[in-house]
Structures are given as C-alpha cells and as structure tokens.
Design a protein around this nucleic acid. Structure first.
Length: 432
RNA sequence: GUGGAUGUAGCUCAGGCGGUUAGAGCGCCAGGUUGUGGCCCUGGAGGUCGGGGGUUCAAAUCCCCUCAUUCACCCCA
C-alpha cells in the first residue's frame, strides 16, 4: 500500500500498540507530578515570536535556525513553541499567579517544535514534559527538581544514568567573568574553530562546551566561572552540592556544561543515559532567576527541567524494564454458527446482550462482528489477549447455558446463562 | 546546515556484474478441524523494487536529481 501524502519530515504517527506505552508513560509522569505536588498548566501551542527571541536568546540555535515561525492572517508574527518554560512564565505573569501562594509548582505535557535535522531521539515535533518551580530561590528547589528527574529515570528502569551539574553564576558575577573570558579567547583566537570565533562576540560561554579538540585545548586553561562567583552564587552552589550529597545522590560537576538557552542563571544540569548514543540527554534543566523580569514581571526566581518523551521511550525500550505495550482484554464472546438451524441469529443476539452486560460491569470484552468460523473467532480472541472466551453454541443454547473457557489454563465449563455474568465477574474481578 | 550509509510485501531482509511471470521468513486471510486459540501442515491475498528523469532492444540492477530513514557533526529533549 502506498499513500500519496506522508507525514512531514521529523514527525511521527504513533500507532497501537505503541500508544499504550505513551499512555503508560503519561500516567507515570502525572502520578509523579502529584507525588511531588506539581499541578498541570496548559499553554497555547503557538506564541508571539517575541516571547522566545527575548527569553531564549537571539543568538541561540533555537532562535536562529530552529523555530517554526509564521505570520497569521492578522499580520501577527507567531511561532510554534520550541520549549515550555517561557510560555509557562508568560502565563504565570499574565494571570497574576505571583499574587497567589508561592512557590508555584507547575508541570506541562505537550508537543514542542524545532526545525532540526531529524535523528533517532530528535524530531521536529516532539512531546515534552517539564516542571517549573516559580517563586523559590532556594537550592532545595533546585534539588527537588533534579531529584525528580533522577526519579523518573529510575522508575523506567534506566540504570547507569549520570547527573551532570554546573553553575554559570548570575548576570552580576558573569559580567566580569565574561569580560575576562572574551579577553582570553581573543588572545587564542587563531586556535579556535570558525564557529567559536563568532561565538566570542555572540555567546562566549558556549565556546566552553565546543567539542572541537583544538578549542578544547584552548578552553582547558580558560578562566572558570567558578572563580568569579559572587557570594550569593557561591553559597547557592555549595549548598546545592551539600544537599545532593546528603541525599546520597551521585553527581559529576561539568564546568563545560552551559546549556543553550540564555535565560539560565546559577544552576544548570543534565541527566544523560549513554546507551542512547548522540542524543543521550534525557533530562535537562536549570535555574532562571531573571526570566520573569525579562518578561516585564517582578523578580520571580524559577527552576525547572524538561524531558523529551520520544527519547525517554527510546531509552525505556533499551533499558532493563521496557514498558509492556500489550493491552489485553478480559474476555471474548464467541458464537458458534452451525448450519442455519434457526438458532444462529438468536445466539448472536444473546451473545451481544451479554457483551453489553459485561461491559456495563466494567469487564473489557469484545466479539467478532464478521460471523467467521468458530476457529477464526477463537484465534481472534487469542490475539486480543482475552483471558476468557464465552462460547455460545447450539448445545449450550438448548440448555440455556454457555461455555466459559480459560484461554490461559485451557479449562472449560458450562454455565447457565442466568449465572454467567456473576460467574465471569467472580473469575475476573474476584482475582482468581 | 555539513558529511557518510540505507530505501525491494504490513514487518525483518535476500536478489543486484542489465535479460521472461521479483523471492524467503514472520504476520494476515482461508482450509486441514461443520464445536475450540497457541503447535503442525496446505493454499491464498498482498509489490508503482521510495519518487522523477536518463542510458539501453531491455533497468529492482548502471548514471543523475529528488524525497525519506539512519549514523556522526552542530545543537538539544
């Protein structure tokens, strides 16, 4: 079969039984959100372009090359959201949530869009889950968020994840650092790759995480932010590490971890799972104390993380306990149609009635509307993962009974039609 | 955006130096089994050989372009 029109590049159709994994993951994330007391927030899929250019940063890859931007019929410049934090903070300010009890703990779950070259674990439309704590400057909030990220990986049976953390200071201490870094880099400019040469002016911190070996040599001896931290940032950083240690959480300090969005301050972190290959960051986040002010609000410190669900499911499949994609039903009604002896139609109707009764009792069940052979129906029942089949046959029909068969154990008994509902309910809901 | 690899049945893949009707396994449908799933046997359906163009008497096979996937880079979730 061919279809003239295919799904656009970098997008995915998610089909059964794969959808069951998504349902499971979503349920897991919602459950954990509740455990950590995060409440769901839903924001539009598109926003004014300016929201992202102002917060994410003009010089970042996201803004420069990855946004789906378009003009609507009213001449408004809009962008399909490439990330969730800026919209959440925007909605938070717009609706005056800062006048309610703080800190606010919010989570979101939905599609994001980035115009990138697709690769395994990286798509143009992808589902992201993220949490944000707004109104708390406390390093305990940083740890709360980080710990939840680790917890999610654990719940999915991902062994061998690594938590990388770093601090990039605040705008105050970063100012002096930035000047010294730029000066240092300009002295070594001949050894830097072309990308990094232009980064010196646009975003010098990003030179630090360039993977080019030549650039690495240069950055090895570059001044470190850690030597420029103001007292507050230093205290925040030290407390953060102390709390992590006291929880027995292992972490690696990675001074080259700066992350690609401009709004980050102080803490940044990533959780990586190496078996994924090139796209091995499953959770990424950090603190953004200046974001609300950038959007015209008051000073509302924030910290959060985001995770890509496609990537997480990819990891889950490769991990220790892949999510079970099957979705079996409780029972299946089989109607054995013999030669047309006048019973068939009646049997079908009685079977169909029982189907309704079972469903009304909360028992999942199905039947074969195609009136195929009994064998075909049994096969169908088997494939649907039915635990029990309920067989309407001529012989049973004459006795006002049906046969109930356990597909798992193979036993089969005749049950009076009047009692079958109770019997099946007992078998399935009674937990035998 | 840069570089490499790969596109043949629903899925996993053979075939490939040009030569009749393009194959296998799995899956699907039916029969063997007019009252029974899984195992086994038999049969059947299902293909624009990713798309377009070119070379040729002849293209799944050679050439060009294009689209898609994938790996790496860039960057991220």
């Amino acid at each position: 079969m061919v279809c003239l029109i295919k799904a656009p590049r970098g997008t995915n159709d998610i089909l059964p039984p794969e959808t069951n994994k998504w349902a499971y993951l979503e349920a897991l994330l919602r459950r954990l959100s509740n455990t950590y007391n995060f409440q769901e927030i839903r924001t539009p899929i598109f926003e004014y372009t300016e929201l992202f250019t102002r917060t994410v940063g003009e010089t970042t890859d996201i803004v420069q090359k990855e946004m789906y931007t378009f003009e609507d019929k009213g001449g408004r410049l809009l962008t399909l959201r490439p990330e969730g934090t800026a919209p959440v903070v925007r909605a938070f300010l717009e609706h005056g949530l800062d006048s309610k009890a703080l800190p606010a703990k919010l989570f979101y779950l939905g599609p994001m869009f980035r115009y990138e070259k697709p690769q395994a674990g990286r798509y143009r439309q992808f589902m992201q889950y993220g949490v944000e704590i707004l109104g708390s400057p406390s390093p305990y909030s940083d740890v709360e968020v980080i710990q939840m990220g680790v917890k999610i990986a654990e719940e999915l049976g991902l062994l061998g994840t690594t938590l990388f953390i770093n601090t990039i200071g605040c705008p105050e201490c970063r100012k002096e650092y930035r000047e010294d870094l730029v000066e240092y880099l300009k002295d070594q400019i001949s050894d830097l790759c072309p990308d990094c040469r232009s980064r010196i002016d646009t975003n010098p911190l990003r030179v630090l995480d360039c993977k080019n070996p030549e650039c690495r040599k240069v950055t090895q001896d570059a001044p470190s932010v850690h030597d420029y931290l103001c007292d507050e940032c230093e205290a925040h950083w030290e407390t953060l590490k102390t709390i992590l240690t006291s929880l027995g959480m292992e972490y690696t300090v990675d001074p080259t971890l700066v992350r690609g969005l401009d709004y980050y301050t102080r803490t940044v972190f990533e959780i990586k799972w190496p078996p994924l290959g090139a796209q091995d960051t499953i959770v990424g986040g950090g603190r953004y104390d200046g974001l609300a002010e950038q959007l015209g609000g008051s000073h509302i410190p924030g910290v959060g993380f985001a995770l890509g669900m496609e990537r997480l499911l990819l990891a889950s499949d490769k991990g220790e306990k892949p999510i079970d994609a099957t979705c079996p039903i409780d029972c299946f009604i089989v109607v054995a149609v013999g030669e047309d002896d006048g019973f068939s139609d009646d049997m079908y109707i009685r079977g169909f009635q029982l189907l309704q009764d079972l469903r009304s009792s909360g028992i999942s069940c199905d039947f074969d509307p195609l009136r195929r052979s009994m064998r075909a129906q049994m096969k169908h029942a088997d494939r649907a993962g039915a635990q029990y089949t309920i067989i309407f046959g001529e012989e049973e029909f004459r006795n006002s009974a049906v046969s109930v068969r356990s597909m798992k154990h193979g036993w089969q008994k005749q049950i009076a039609l009047d009692h079958v509902l109770g019997f099946v309910k007992g078998e399935i809901l009674g937990g035998t």
